[in-house]
């Protein structure tokens, strides 16, 4: 008998009587100022929130936030600061010198600053992790309050990949001292558009 059937048989034998699956309320918070909340959260998670009025100003604000970056990639079509066309890369190892990645995300969650990006938007999964710095771009109307609403709205890439990114890469593994930039992004700015 295979391990699979042995495990499944053992579960059948040992599992308790079926218990009901609970309903999950949405726990919406209609009174909260979501942008103000997000702004506060971003500072807690080591990121920066910048509100901009439209996509036209994005290149100049990105340049101001990240001056003198040499190798810049983006998933935004014809983004003027792009110096590396990530679409043309085949082996993700070739992304290793990326200084800055500018990524348009699907939506952001106010309660924890998490931006949802799926594989098709990432182009390469490595883009979000191999880069030295990261700028995320989300439309203001794509701001939800909490994770319950987030899962209501997101579509998982199947097959594929998707990730909630909440601030830069960080660690506190040495004496609980927070160090930003453990492996990937050493900084993260979220641009909220509109």
């Amino acid at each position: 008998m295979s391990s699979r059937s042995k495990i499944l048989d053992a579960i059948k034998k040992n599992k308790p009587q079926l218990s009901p699956l609970p309903e999950i309320p949405e726990f919406d918070n209609e009174t909260v100022d979501k942008v103000a909340f997000l702004n506060e959260v971003m500072s807690i998670i080591g990121g920066v929130l910048e509100e901009i009025k439209d996509m036209d100003v994005l290149p100049s604000v990105v340049e101001a936030a990240y001056p003198n970056k040499k190798i810049i990639g983006s998933n935004i079509e014809n983004f003027p600061l792009t110096t590396l066309d990530v679409n043309s890369i085949e082996d993700p190892h070739d992304l290793q010198n990326l200084d800055l990645i500018v990524l348009k995300g699907e939506f952001v969650v106010a309660e924890n600053g998490a931006v949802w990006i799926s594989e098709k938007d990432l182009v390469h999964r490595a883009n979000a992790y191999i880069t030295q710095h990261m700028a995320l771009v989300v439309n203001r109307e794509d701001l939800v309050w909490n994770m319950h609403q987030a899962y209501k709205r997101l579509e998982l890439d199947r097959p594929g990949y998707g990730v909630f990114i909440s601030g830069p890469s960080k660690t506190a593994d040495i004496e609980q001292s927070l160090v930003i930039g453990a492996h990937g992004s050493r900084s993260m700015t979220l641009f909220l558009v509109g």
């Binding site: 600053g113 998490a114 594929g160 990949y161 998707g162 990730v163």
Partner: peptide, 11 residues
């Protein structure tokens, strides 16, 4: 409030 990365691997 959440970890920096919550990755959903579906392939």
């Amino acid at each position: 409030p959440i970890t920096s990365f919550s990755s959903h691997f579906h392939g």
